[in-house]
Write a protein that binds this DNA or RNA. Structure first.
Length: 866
RNA sequence: GCUCACGUGGCGGAACUGGCAGACGCGUGCGCCUCAGGAGCGCAUGGGGAAACCCUUGGAGGUUCGAAUCCUCUCGUGAGCACCA
């Protein structure tokens, strides 16, 4: 295609301004202590979820969120804030490592190349980042502190009394290793043979790896874990204070999965053992007719009767070899085997059989349940299959109501009235729960408790391209390296292939591995999430060589938010605005909160939460309304859009498409639409010369705005300001279009209008705003400095007022006519005027008017009698 | 299955706290300008109807002087969870 002459020379001025901003350090954010730091200004920390620099380059989805934050950053600077708006790279991760395995090229090389490309692309869009704060999670100066934070976790425990992390030295018990926040455990984990590594629960989706979709199996292994469960309660409770979308809060709450219930002890006299179960329905204890242990339950071999041992062993082996996928797919039919053991139901002394079945999961509760088939669907299915007793102990309805016939296929799981339950009979479920728990506690057979779905965070990976653990192994015991030995860098390797064993690729570097005669290094590395758990802190003070973040910098940027009017708001967290996709709802956003709370508890931070306000951008679909993917061939490349329409058009279009949070399809026609708008703005100021160049328009004059223009201008100031504050960028753009259309045909064209429009436009389309501002400066005074360093315009309500308002005239709620009325017309005048409107009179005809509703400035509704 | 979110023209979407539905943009039609236009400018554009007028925010009810907005049910789409005891 022959390149068409562009409607305005963006390809000249966009790169020009980009390099000028870069050269002048226009968006540098001074820290407290710097010579140019202005302490009187309020601060604003606006952060993007930093990207993984993939080989694909920047995606239009990245740009949507980044444009939104850039608009806010630029706007906040113009209203007088110190703005921290940084960017960096989350560069440890699988793709670079897999590329290395294929090509033998060191991941560092690929990573550096990708970072360079990403950076160039971001700069070509004119984002106002303070590039002096840039870092990558793979920089030794950065991951040194990631390792340091790991040591804080390793050297801390969660004190249940204070509900806080404390240094391990304060632990009163004997075995510190039992309570460390970072600990080693031998347990069944998600092993992905294809990736040669284990994965966290959060990284496994429907039995497959989130990355690549490879099958994942369960396999017992020795792994590093982080004790995130200790924080489950605070992670739920403290969500309440955050300005996050309710949907994300809900996702986190559900993921953490708090449920209240009771622990109940069942004795097995024959083997002198006891089984503890968790139940949310202690009120149904009288209906417990059997028990089920998870196949992995440690008590299984102890209690199994000799004549059952081989059956049980076979079943355990089968269950153990099943992948998660198989185990969930085979859910239609319940399976299980009887252990031959009997337990005593503590409430009635009955002997009930103990089974094992894979529908009971070791990972939740105690790995054992009491089965109440009448009131639990799964127990019912199991009981029916194996012919176990079903006993109804709750009836539907209120006290005195009839007992519903137990249906054969559907268990009654709702609340109701206890029956067949001795001391509970006649009690409604909530009271029955309290009563039985009190009874159990008194007899020391059980107690009220809270259980969570959240598992501890599996924190080690068998990979090369990640942070090595600052840990040594001596005689089979782990020991922390001293802080002074950080960072621990990966050894150089020729071969990055996973070993397929828990040792991982680092074990191939024998020199590196051998720390001393006795000590060997830990060969696992940290998961990719480690680096993103605290990067927002490092941005406050990225060059600090003495501390992970300097205290002054941290307390300045992470506390003391003020809104645009300088008012302090209630706050708990540090980053004032955090924008990114929903895909991190239960991963990064949960992990980062956890680390942050630990560091806060240990006294390193000033706030208990990392992100005060979170906004999710919606997914951008391809033009065909499908998810963008290479295989569908519907991926929009931002570089092409910039070449064709310019960076300002790209930015503006992404904001104009629709609400930020919403999913929406791409449309090249839509890009052309905003491109035409920017061309119209350009021609407001410039006109074409005979020679085909551009010169200031001869229509431009220093005349007053007409009252209509002034009203439009002030309405635009108001709307754009409010819309930026409320993230309604699409309607802000609409309003600027309206204002521009007001000036298009005005001759002479008042320069004063541009003094308002260009600053409003500059956060959205900074290049054209700067260029036109500079061009106007050649002839008109007052256009000194830059558009982006202008104070934000302030609207004046008095210019918005009109003398006459158009009213809708309704009869019985239907618009029949319209009328004009003075803005301060009295109610009586409005009524009279409405009744006189011809079409309204026709609609009223000879019927009686019962009342007239007046909505000032809007409408008059004539209500007729029935 | 459970939980949550969302359904408005041919399309993306507007509509403050219940107050004139369809702003703005795309597309389309007609006209102007032009050597030319995938440029620009003007007018029109929810549907039906010649018109008066009627209909219209997924569907059905309800509350209200008045509902896209609130309530109940229902259908559809999307997301998350999924044997969680």
């Amino acid at each position: 295609m022959v390149s068409q002459r562009k409607q305005f020379p963006f390809h000249e001025f966009e790169p020009k301004w980009q390099s000028q901003w870069l050269a002048s350090g226009a968006f540098r954010a001074p820290n407290p202590g710097d010579a140019d730091f202005r302490s009187a200004k309020p601060k604003f920390y606006v952060l993007d979820m930093f990207p993984y620099p993939s080989g694909e380059g920047l995606h239009v989805g990245h740009i949507e969120g980044y444009t939104a934050t850039d608009i806010v950053a630029r706007y906040k600077r113009m209203v007088g804030f110190n703005v921290l708006h940084p960017m960096g790279w989350d560069a440890f991760g699988l793709p670079a490592e897999q590329f290395a395995i294929k090509t033998g090229q060191h991941p560092r090389v690929t990573t550096e190349r990708n970072i360079a490309r990403f950076k160039e692309q971001l700069q070509s869009i004119g984002f106002s980042y303070d590039w002096a704060r840039e870092f990558s999670t793979t920089d030794p100066d950065y991951f040194r502190w990631t390792q340091w934070i790991f040591l804080r976790l390793y050297n801390s425990w969660f004190n249940p009394v204070t509900r806080k992390a404390e240094p391990i030295a304060t632990y009163p018990g004997k075995v510190a290793d039992d309570v460390r926040l970072a600990y080693v455990a031998e347990m069944p984990v998600n092993w992905c043979p294809a990736l040669g590594t284990v994965l966290a629960n959060e990284e496994v989706v429907e039995g497959k790896s989130e990355v690549g979709g490879h099958p994942v199996e369960r396999r017992p292994m020795r792994q590093w874990m982080l004790r995130i469960i200790a924080y489950a309660e605070r992670l739920i409770d403290e969500l309440a204070e955050l300005d996050w979308p309710e949907g994300i809060k809900l996702l986190q709450r559900n993921w953490i999965g708090r449920s209240e219930g009771a622990l109940v002890r069942f004795d097995l006299p024959e083997t002198k053992s006891e089984i503890e179960v968790f139940t949310t329905r202690p009120d149904t204890l009288f209906g417990a007719t059997y028990m089920v242990l998870s196949p992995e339950h440690p008590l299984v071999s102890k209690i199994t009767a000799p004549d059952r041992a081989s059956n049980v062993e076979t079943y355990r082996r089968q269950a153990g070899s099943k992948s998660d996928l198989e185990r969930t797919e085979l859910t239609k039919e319940k399976t299980g085997v009887f252990t031959g053991a009997f337990a005593t139901n503590p409430v009635n002394g009955e002997k009930i059989p103990v089974w094992i079945a894979d529908y009971v999961l070791m990972g939740y509760g105690t790995g054992a349940i009491m089965a109440v088939p009448a009131h639990d669907q799964r127990d019912l299915e199991f009981a029916k299959k194996f012919g176990l007793e079903i006993r109804q102990v709750v009836k539907e309805g209120n006290a005195g109501g009839n007992a519903a016939e137990p249906t054969p296929d559907v268990a009654f799981t709702g609340e109701g009235i206890a029956m067949n339950s001795a001391l509970l009979n006649g009690l409604p479920t909530p009271e029955a729960k309290l009563r039985i728990v009190a009874w159990l506690e008194q007899k020391e057979l059980g107690r009220a408790t809270v259980s969570y779905k959240l598992r501890d965070w599996l924190f080690s990976r068998q990979r090369y391209w990640g942070e090595p653990f600052p840990i040594l192994w001596v005689d089979g015991r782990h020991r922390a390296l001293d802080e002074t030995e950080l960072p621990v860098s990966q050894p150089d390797l020729e071969d990055f292939k996973p070993t397929g064993a828990p040792e991982g690729p680092l074990s191939k570097a024998s020199d590196w591995l051998r720390y001393s005669e006795m000590a060997r290094r830990e060969t696992n590395t940290m998961p990719q999430w480690a680096g993103s758990c605290w990067y927002y802190l490092r941005f406050c003070d990225p060059k600090n060589g003495k501390r992970f973040v300097g205290e002054t910098a941290e307390s300045y940027w992470m506390t003391g938010l003020a809104n645009s009017r300088g008012e302090q708001s209630r706050r708990v967290g540090g980053v004032d605005l955090y924008v990114g996709g929903t895909e991190h709802a239960v991963l990064h956003l949960l992990y980062a909160r956890f680390w942050h709370k630990v560091l806060y508890d240990l006294g390193y931070l000033s706030t208990p939460e990392p992100f005060q306000r979170l906004v999710n951008q919606g997914v951008i679909l391809g033009p065909d309304n499908q998810k963008m993917s290479k295989s569908r061939g519907n991926v929009v490349n931002p570089e092409n859009v910039i070449a064709e329409y310019g960076a300002d058009s790209l930015r503006l279009y992404e904001m104009f498409m629709g609400p930020l949070e919403q999913m929406k399809p791409w449309s090249m026609k839509g890009v052309e639409g905003v491109y035409r708008f920017l061309a119209r703005v350009w021609r407001l100021v410039m006109e074409e010369t005979q020679e085909g160049g551009w010169a200031l328009s001869s229509d431009l004059t220093e005349v007053d705005l007409t009252s209509r223009q002034r009203r439009a201008a002030h309405a635009t100031i108001k709307k754009v300001t409010e819309d930026i504050e409320s993230f309604a960028f699409n309607t802000a753009v609409s309003q600027m279009m309206i204002l521009t259309n007001e000036f298009v045909n005005s001759r002479p064209r008042p320069v004063a209008g541009l003094r308002i429009l260009l600053p409003l436009l500059s956060p959205f389309a900074p290049h054209i705003a700067e260029e036109l501002w500079a061009r106007l400066g050649e002839k008109f005074p007052g256009f000194d400095d830059h558009a982006s360093s202008q104070p934000w315009p302030i609207h004046d309500e008095k210019f918005l007022e009109v003398d006459e308002v158009e009213y809708g005239v309704q009869v019985n709620g239907k618009v029949r006519d319209r009328m004009r009325a003075k803005k301060d017309a009295s109610d009586a005048e409005l009524e009279e005027c409405a009744l006189a409107a011809p079409k309204a009179r026709e609609a009223v005809a000879d019927r009686r008017v019962s009342k007239i509703v007046i909505v000032r400035g809007k409408l008059v509704n004539i209500v007729l009698a029935k």
